[in-house]
Computed example of a mutant assay.
Amino acid sequence: MARRRQLETPSPEALKEIEAGIDRDLARSPGLRPPIADVVADAARHADPLPQADREAIARDKADAERLRDAEGKGLVAVELPLEDITADALNRDRIELDEEEMQELMTSISVNGLRLPIEVFEPLNPEDAGKFALVSGYRRLTALRRLNAVSGGDRFQTIPAFIREPGSIANALVSMIEENEIRSGLSQYERGRAAASAVHDGIFASVDEAVAVLFQHASKAKRSKIRSFAVIHEELGDMLSHGTGLNERQCLRLAGALRTGAAERLRAALERAGGRSAAEEWEAMVPVIESTEGEPLDPSRGGRPKTAKKVEKARRTEVARGITIEREYGPAGYAIRFSGSEVTQELVDTVMDNVRHLLEHG
């Protein structure tokens, strides 16, 4: 019967030698390394050695970055845009006249203190016609910056802070523009009617009734009814009235009433004789016609309810000089040429008309 070999406990020196041998074998054969060793080493490498205050600061920075990305996605972060990338008249502006004294005050404020309130723009679906960015609100601020840029010879005021919005539709953009102007300084009675009539003319709405209901959705029922009346004035006399914004509410209502009796042609003739020298002279010229119609029955075909939109064909806009664009239109009333841009003035249009008249008369 064989004798059993008695096992002895290895000495500390022997254990160290055994461990060293195992480490050498593992180093030569990485595949023999037990998974738990990798897990432990990885955990040790990724242990956060930063102090508590630094870890809190990193967490705050991460949260701030997430909020910034969310705000940018909602168009709540202003960006600097070059002035030449913004088209001011991509939307038919509701504001017609700019008070020159107020404009000079705004320019002085911007030159001294900078622009404190960004404008609002959106990226149109037709950038080849409407530009890279189309203005929603801030027409006075953009005009002031452009004037300051021109005064500086183009060296200063080259950009403007802007919020890039996603209005979803041109109708929503028009609502934003009108609401901003109503809140800041209010539109004239004529400008309100013109905004609704122009939106129908541009094909954004099918009727004045729909345009007023959307563009002035927060106005009272009585106010919307008046705006529909003011729209009639622009539809019938918009190309003749040079000082429509000077008409007060009562004058607009009387004028709309006269138009509903069928007096449009007589009123147009009166305005042509007046020559458009001032709001007072235009009104005085129309008063006899208006008074002669008061008390007459209204023409049912010219009621306050809106007309159906008429199809207007438009050619592509062409930029000619100084930011001025021209566009040919054709509709039921015939051909028209639309001039747009901050540099368009009554004198410029009169000069163009004189040249056209000369061309037609002399071949």
Rank of each mutant, 00 (worst) to 15 (best):
P49S: 13
E72Q: 15
D54S: 10
L215V: 00
A336I: 01
I290F: 10
L298K: 14
D48A: 02
G244T: 01
S198C: 06
R3C: 03
A213H: 12
S292T: 04
L360I: 00
R33I: 15
L81K: 03
L359P: 00
G203Y: 01
H362F: 05
L255H: 02
A263Y: 02
D239C: 00
N181E: 14
L106N: 01
T308P: 12
K221Q: 14
E327Y: 02
R165N: 12
S188V: 00
A2H: 12
F216Q: 06
E101T: 13
R95H: 02
R67D: 08
R4D: 09
M1T: 07
A270R: 10
V320Y: 08
S198W: 00
E313W: 01
A53N: 08
E282V: 00
K310E: 15
F339S: 01
L241Q: 02
E347T: 09
S301I: 00
R141C: 05
A37E: 15
G303H: 03
R302P: 04
A14T: 05
A130F: 14
A71T: 00
L15G: 04
N172M: 12
A59L: 14
R250D: 08
L267K: 02
A43V: 07
R277P: 00
C252W: 04
D54Q: 12
A269G: 04
Q251Y: 02
R5N: 10
L76Y: 05
R95Y: 00
G154K: 13
L259W: 11
F122L: 02
V136C: 01
H243F: 09
G331R: 07
S176D: 12
E56G: 03
S278L: 08
S229H: 12
E329A: 05
F133S: 05
P127L: 07
M103F: 08
R93Q: 13
I96G: 01
D38G: 14
S29E: 14
S11L: 11
S185K: 03
G21P: 03
I96M: 11
K221P: 01
D299Y: 10
F339D: 03
G193Y: 02
Q6R: 15
R33W: 11
L7Y: 09
T9Y: 12
L125T: 10
K311E: 13
L360G: 02
V232T: 13
H234K: 07
R254A: 07
F339Y: 14
L271E: 05
G203T: 01
G153R: 13
S229P: 00
K223M: 07
L187C: 05
V39S: 15
L348R: 10
R194W: 05
R45V: 07
R317Q: 06
E101R: 15
K74Q: 11
R277L: 09
R302N: 06
E128C: 00
P167A: 03
G138K: 05
F122M: 08
S198L: 12
G244R: 05
A321I: 05
A71F: 05
G341Q: 07
V208T: 15
L259I: 12
R317F: 00
K311Q: 12
V352N: 01
E66L: 07
G138T: 04
